[in-house]
Structure formats: C-alpha cells, structure tokens
Design a protein around this nucleic acid. Structure first.
Lengths: 107, 107
DNA sequence: CCGATATATAGCTCTACAGTTATATGTAGA
DNA sequence: TCTACATATAACTGTAGAGCTATATATCGG
C-alpha cells in the first residue's frame, strides 16, 4: 500500500505536473484552458495531470458551466513537511545520542 | 536543464531509494552489505540507488578497505524545504493581497 | 600469488507512465 | 435543435528507469 509520502513524491516528481501545481500556487485558481494555453503539452495531458494532482489532494476542482476551475490545496503538502522534519529529527537525535555518549565518556 | 528541485523530487520519488535514504537518516552510516541485507532488492540495485542518491547530494560515501560506508547528507534537503516554503509563501502572499483588497473595499 | 569477499559496472528485460490523436460528454447560445 | 466550445476519457506509442544476472575491479587473509 502506498503511503502519503509515496503519493506526494511520485505526484510531484514529474516536472510538467509540478509546474502546473506551482502555477496554481503562484497565481491562484485557473481553468483548464488557461493552464493548457500556458503549458507546453496538449489539453488532454493537462487534464490527466490535474487528475493525478487531484487524486493526491493537491488540487481542488470547481465546476462552473462548461469550465472547470482548479486551485491548489496547500494543506496536502503537510506529509511532505512532516517527512522532511522527521528526517531532520532522526539526524538530530543521532547527534544528541552521540553527544550523550561523549559526555558519559568524558566523566 | 534540471533544477535542484527536479533532481530531488525525482530521486526521492522511488520508494526503495527513499527507504534507503530514510534508513541512513535513522540509523546513520551503513555499508552496502548492511543495506543490501535489509533491502528487498539485489546488491547491484542497492548500489545503483546509492549512486543516484549520491548524484543528488543526498548521501556521502567513505571508502574503508573493501567496504564503502554511506551516510545521509541532510543539507541536501534544503531545496526541498525552500520549494515547500516558497509554495506556502505564494499562497500567503495571495492571501495577503486579498486581505488588502478587502480592507480597501471596506473603507 | 590465490581464493574469498565487497562493491561497482555492463547488458538486458519489463513495466509504468507521459505524451499523443481521436472521440465522448456536457454546457452555452442562436 | 444545431453548432461551437470546454473538458474528460479512450486507446495507443515511445521511452525512462528499476530490477535482474553476470562480470569486472579492488582489497583482504593466507
């Protein structure tokens, strides 16, 4: 079973997809047409990327007539932040452990 | 040309490779043998992953006789943290802008 | 120098997936 | 209802890369 980290990293690994997400973060809600006009890939490709981003919880869609507006869901980045600080935490705790060890050896 | 984000996301996208990096963060320096015994893939696969991680700056290798010791380089995660806070920053600034707008409308 | 061990590289295969074109679905306006 | 437009889905293709086995390179012990 894929974890939240798995999904996030895999989703953000593709440059085109990440660029779309970045654009949504930067400039806010956008229609598929707007994103397609800007991206260097076809409209179906954009739709597919948006589908993957949506599946990962990174975007939200809002239907209005013929158009679909997509917007970034920043909260979905939480597991990424958690993972990073967890790695930093592990590192720090090993460092602390070493410090302890050195202190005890010193006595 | 691939950016630092590109390399990092792509490198960490693979679950096996990320697991190896996590292990190095958790338990510190490890030999290839130790990592292979623990991972669910062959020794060449582990070596290849370590090569990719090294290329991304995420690990460091230290040769000692026949063995190669690998350790995590936490600093390499910086661009990831930067990217995340940049995305959050964009979001925040758009929010601030909206706040401004509402304030001005209120007057 | 020789066998054993540790790691890296070579060469191959198989799969996941990003991209494409064509088409289906759905909505707006005349 | 007919046409134009907006998006999604289908079906296919090409390629990157993760995995394997076999082998090369290098170091240790005898």
């Amino acid at each position: 079973m894929p974890t939240a980290h798995d999904v996030l990293f895999r989703t953000l690994a593709d440059p085109t997809r990440r660029a779309i997400f970045e654009r949504l973060c930067r400039d806010g809600e956008q229609t598929v047409s707007a994103l397609t006009a800007w991206a260097r890939v076809s409209q179906p490709a954009v739709s597919k990327h948006l589908g993957v981003l949506k599946h990962a919880g990174l975007v939200r869609d809002r239907h209005q007539g013929r158009q679909t507006h997509y917007s970034a869901q920043l909260g979905a980045l939480a597991p990424l932040i958690d993972w990073t600080s967890q790695m930093a935490g592990f590192w720090q705790s090993r460092f602390d452990h070493l410090e302890d060890l050195l202190k005890r050896m010193d006595q």
